[in-house]
Nucleic acid binder design. Structure first.
Lengths: 151, 151
DNA sequence: GCCATATTGTTTGATATCAAACAATCCCGT
DNA sequence: ACGGGATTGTTTGATATCAAACAATATGGC
């Protein structure tokens, strides 16, 4: 498809872009999620709260897909959250294999507390980029992430 | 600094950009690192091989910083790699607390095998973006990641 | 030179995560 | 109907990861 030389060049460019993407995501993530410890929330737990709050009740499988974790892990995460009274499992009447995961009042209150702080921190972290740049970053990342998962 | 309305707008933009960044990094990472399992390498182990191969011998602390993991974890990762004969710990003559981590011949051979495949996969994954876009993505991510770590 | 403080690597205990195997249930083609 | 394959959630066993406490060594101020 390409000559060896041009191939090396595109490899270097792709590797560089990928490394920068991975490192920036990881270091920004560390900075953004630092404050969650104050609420004894893990990143996964926060992801679950956020999804349930914004989307409404979901099955465990949908939750797992949303936060990109395995279903086995989701069982574990939800067990911990249920113990703390943040979520409630409710049998799905339409499918007796499935459960609907609901936010409890306590979970709703917590996410209403945490989310504004979260948004503020994200805004601050991203504010190094101007509006146009944030749009462009979002566009490029969406394109990348949307690569076909199952052909 | 801003009116409430504009604040909500910038919050939404920042949150959107951040979510897309995080999700694309995670899903691309999964796709890129799938092939490492064939070599019984974890992502951290591959990161160590890569760093040592391209930079030369490094202390555990530098390695930990390079792959963004804790030093405690680095001890664990290196123990596993040492058991497999991929790296060798060598006392640093200038600082008796520190060790220099070296690639063994076996480790060098392995990374020479794995790296070209890795580069190829990364190139393929990133090829959804054209050259200009990859440059731009790299630039934006570098800016984001470079945010001051310790003030 | 000596001591307080910092840095390096290790240990330890607690979580998080995954993959694989599993049971229960659903669904579709015949 | 119904039987085989798909889907949902759980369990299990193995790893990975972190934070915190620790021991050994280095370093800089006095």
């Amino acid at each position: 498809m390409e000559t060896g030389d041009s191939r090396e060049r595109t490899d270097r460019l792709a590797l560089g872009a990928w490394v920068k993407l991975a490192r920036s995501a990881e270091s920004v993530s560390t900075r953004i999620h630092g404050h969650l410890a104050a609420y004894r929330l893990t990143v996964s737990q926060f992801g679950v709260l956020e999804a349930l709050y914004h989307v409404g009740p979901l099955s465990q499988r949908s939750l797992a897909r949303k936060i990109l974790k395995s279903t086995g892990n989701m069982t574990h995460v939800l067990n911990n959250m249920e113990k703390r009274g943040l979520v409630r499992r409710q049998p799905d009447p339409k499918d007796r294999r499935a459960v609907e995961v609901h936010l409890t009042r306590k979970g709703t209150q917590l996410v209403r507390n945490v989310f504004p702080r979260h948004a503020e921190i994200v805004r601050r972290e991203m504010s190094i980029l101007n509006t146009t740049e944030q749009h462009e970053l979002g566009r490029l990342c969406r394109k990348l992430g949307l690569q076909t998962k199952e052909p």
